[in-house]
Nucleic acid binder design. Structure first.
Lengths: 342, 342
DNA sequence: CTGAAAGCGCTTACAG
DNA sequence: CTGAAAGCGCTTACAG
């Protein structure tokens, strides 16, 4: 239970040198099995705790990875990235690393202030969750430690990237709607605001193309301005039979709006989302949506980071991880009706 | 932009010793202002980043505080403690510390495994958010670094405690209901499950006592089993005019249940919660509830921790922080009706 | 005002 | 199989 037991203390107790203790505790060559067992046992008895700081200083590695989440993604209700963090932290743990979560405030992002953990050399690398401003990316490009972006892609970023397969996810989702008889389908999302939304839109469009359905401008509806701030959704004069929303939160808002105008979902209009986050569950009806594979993405991102730490030479990689459809109650099969109304 | 600039590098460049650099960069006595300015400027130019690891090792302090949240509080929807973490991290930052968030898995809690950040000496202290098992508290009592519990109180814990004033919060809330004419009031929560719920219940009871209203057993309704797992709420035969719920989530569930049985809230029955978390906002009607002062609690907890780190001798303190009523739409004033039905 | 020396607790060659 | 020496990058007395 000693308050500050060091390897030297163990060494003195056993009449050996601290080098031997170090080797034994790290399972390295050069200590007899017998001695090693003895050392481990005594270390345990004395309540020895390894001093990572000393090792870190020797090696110039902190064995910590910073995980950055822009503040705007951590609002009252939005907990998607926080959930992401949990998985990342768990994977890091398996690799003997710790995660240090840092919420990047809007001010710091604006004024291009890096988190203190960077200046303090407390982290060996940075994992960035979600979209971040171009200026900030430039700032990050200039720093000395490896970076990986998760769930956000930017051409200019000099870093590894792990994104969800937005394109195919929305493509499959739209295929699913069409298979259920929908031909008039709207897309809700500002396609100039983020690359994820853009890709999701393109997946949607690809499905329309393949089915020879026209892309109608009045069915492409803005949900936010270019800076990401949500705006009031303006519905078209004629409501399509289904809306594809770029995320669950927007789908949730849309459903509320449709219902307040007297439309029933999915009877009068189907609505689908993307992400399978909390909004998909609290929506009434529950949302049919695309689930992001957080676990797989976390695993991939951590592996990229650690391999980068081991060999700085490696080129940047871009990995996209497939999601999967989650079918719930917000889509109506309208094949029959269509045949008669056509 | 050098990759690994040290104080010695700056020293050599300027032809002084590294001791002088250390003093200048830390704003300590013993360097002329002129030299100090010059040193800071050159450090900046050379892209010097302070090596906290070295300082830490010298001082035996990591300048990190672990923040532990039991896994069960971080579910899909529950983000209250994560929000708490953000405030704590910000306050720590002001004190030149970093927060390391650790989600304690159910397994680790059960098997009494301490987080690695403890064994690795990466943290100087531990902040525990929310209730944790008695066995785990015993485990924590045995470790060498200071602990503070937030939003949870346990007599056996040898640590500082910062709790919200559950007792007075619920007392005031119940007073508010009575002032609005309610005399038949139910309490929803398992009063044997956590000390917070118990205290909230006692505040509720105190208000009844003061107003000479009887405490009816059939109006005390369980929402979870002793281990904290939610159970189906069983409503009494006769529905009271108001329900006091031990937290917003339960209030939300209760409203859903009442509505599914044909009751209107608050017209037929008023419902109040506690916490002012996301459930208070998504409930329909929006909940009248008690808001926990997360900011103040975070500030207090961090101060206690840091003062403990500076003088280990100090006794444990228990601080309770007042919340405040948030009035919204889930309570109906029924004074008049009561006068006629009485 | 400035600096030489020692030490924080480990690990990495290297020698025996 | 075992250990003496040097060093990671700082800071803390202490001496000049």
């Amino acid at each position: 239970m000693g308050n500050n037991v060091t390897m030297r203390d163990i060494a003195e107790r056993l009449g050996v040198s601290s080098v031997t203790i170090s080797k034994a505790l790290n399972d390295k060559e050069g200590v007899s099995d017998e001695l090693k067992q003895k050392i481990k046992q005594v270390a345990e008895e004395m309540g020895y705790r390894f001093n990572t700081l000393a090792k870190s200083m020797k090696e110039g590695q902190a064995y910590n990875i910073g995980v950055i989440i822009p503040e705007r993604f951590t609002g009252e209700i939005q907990s998607f990235y926080l959930k992401f963090y949990q998985h990342i932290a768990r994977v890091l743990d398996h690799h003997q690393y710790s995660g240090i979560l840092h919420i990047l405030s809007a001010d710091d992002e604006e004024q291009k202030v890096l988190p203190r953990i960077y200046y303090d050399k407390k982290v060996d690398g940075l994992l960035i969750l979600g979209q971040i401003s171009n200026d900030y990316i430039q700032l990050l490009n200039g720093i000395e430690i490896p970076i990986a972006y998760i769930d956000f892609y930017n051409e200019d970023a000099e870093a590894d990237t792990v994104i969800t397969d937005n394109f195919y996810g929305m493509y499959e989702m739209t295929n699913y709607l069409i298979k259920n008889g929908h031909q008039e389908i709207g897309f809700v999302g500002n396609i100039y605001s983020t690359s994820s939304i853009q890709d999701r839109f393109l997946g949607f469009y690809k499905s329309l193309l393949e089915h020879k359905l026209p892309l109608k401008q009045e069915y492409i509806i803005k949900d936010r301005d270019e800076r990401g701030k949500y705006i009031e959704i303006e519905l078209p004069d004629k409501i399509p039979t289904a809306f594809v929303c770029n995320c669950d939160q927007i789908a949730y808002n849309l459903i509320t709006k449709l219902q307040s105008l007297g439309y029933r979902v999915p009877e009068d209009c189907s609505v689908v989302g993307f992400d399978n986050d909390i909004y998909a569950q609290i929506a009434e009806p529950k949302l049919t949506t695309v689930e992001v594979d957080i676990e797989e993405m976390s695993r991939t991102a951590v592996q990229l980071m650690i391999s980068k730490l081991k060999s700085k030479k490696r080129k940047w990689e871009q990995v996209s991880v497939k999601g999967k459809l989650v079918l719930r109650d917000s889509v109506k099969k309208i094949t029959d009706e269509l045949q008669t109304t056509d």
